[in-house]
Computed example of a mutant assay.
Amino acid sequence: MSPSPFFEQLFEHARQITPYLDGKVALSSAPNQTDLLYFEQPCSDTIQKLYEELKRAHPEAGAAYWLTRTWTLLCWQPIYVAFVAIYACRGLPELRSIGQTVQTNFISGFQFADTGYREGKREQLIYAAGEQLKQLFDFYRDEMNQWVRVRPGFTNHLFADGVLACLVKLSQLTPELTRDEIRAHAKLWLNACGLPEKLAESLKSGHDENSLKLIRTSCCLVYKCQGRKLCADCPRHPDNKQPKRAVGIKTT
């Protein structure tokens, strides 16, 4: 069975973003497949296996990195799919029905068993996407909490940075959107995802009048891996640190 035109368009646009974002419709896939993550299907062991693989691959990086990388891998595809669907396809699939393929040290490839999707105004779709992403990520966190403590504050900053990074990419792909429009979209997304609106301030003006750059509020800790450096958008990067205010000395 070939996917509907909406899903064909969604998968094509997703692959143009990155070939790792490879989607398909798989109505007959068994939801309990061990290498697939499905909403409300037990997957704690599968996620822990990914964590342990990252630990073996980068023993020098430490537990904070293994946890951060695991969470980032769980969330990157659903966020990207939401953006591609809304901005490129003007619709939204049921994000909670997404199945994600777990590979060695990585999560790449997704599928939908539910081919239903909704249409509507962009703001409505953003709020629907935010609610579905919250539910999906809460489920992942509950599954991980069976074997490691995962604080909501920790995951929320990574969630927000993932959303804002997609908005920066959107601004690059759609130059007709002004910086103010992208910032307005950022506040919509953050509100929809139950995240603090003030995090939109992480979007900074770029080198020209319409470009934007992100200074993240979270660090992926990849610099702890041997041979790796700080990311350009990392808050720890020297270029992104706020200059200290000079303290004057009073003279009389």
Rank of each mutant, 00 (worst) to 15 (best):
P19K: 14
P19I: 15
Y20G: 12
Y20M: 10
L21T: 02
D22H: 11
G23N: 09
G23P: 08
K24G: 04
K24M: 09
A26E: 08
S28E: 06
A30L: 07
P31D: 00
Q33C: 13
Q33P: 03
T34Q: 15
T34K: 15
T34H: 14
D35M: 10
L36G: 01
L36P: 02
L36D: 00
L37T: 02
F39D: 00
F39C: 02
E40R: 12
E40D: 11
E40Q: 13
E40F: 12
Q41H: 14
Q41Y: 14
P42C: 08
P42T: 08
P42N: 08
C43G: 03
D45S: 15
T46W: 08
T46L: 12
I47S: 02
Q48F: 14
K49E: 09
K49Y: 13
Y51V: 05
Y51F: 15
E52D: 15
E52F: 15
E52Q: 15
K55N: 12
R56F: 01
R56D: 04
A57N: 12
H58T: 04
H58G: 04
H58V: 03
P59Y: 07
P59A: 06
P59H: 09
E60G: 06
E60R: 08
E60S: 08
A61H: 03
Y65R: 07
Y65K: 06
W66M: 06
W66Y: 12
L67Y: 08
T68H: 11
T68N: 12
T70L: 15
W71A: 05
T72Q: 11
T72H: 04
L73V: 01
L74W: 14
L74H: 08
C75L: 11
W76Y: 10
W76N: 00
W76R: 02
Q77I: 08
P78F: 07
Y80R: 09
Y80A: 11
V81G: 00
A82H: 03
F83Q: 01
I86Y: 04
Y87S: 01
Y87G: 00
C89Q: 02
C89Y: 00
R90E: 03
G91V: 04
G91W: 06
L92I: 00
P93N: 08
P93T: 01
E94W: 04
L95K: 07
L95F: 03
L95I: 08
R96M: 05
R96I: 03
S97Y: 03
S97Q: 08
S97V: 02
S97K: 10
G99H: 06
G99A: 09
Q100W: 13
T101G: 02
T101H: 13
V102C: 11
I107L: 13
S108R: 14
G109K: 13
F110N: 04
F110P: 08
F110Y: 15
F110V: 05
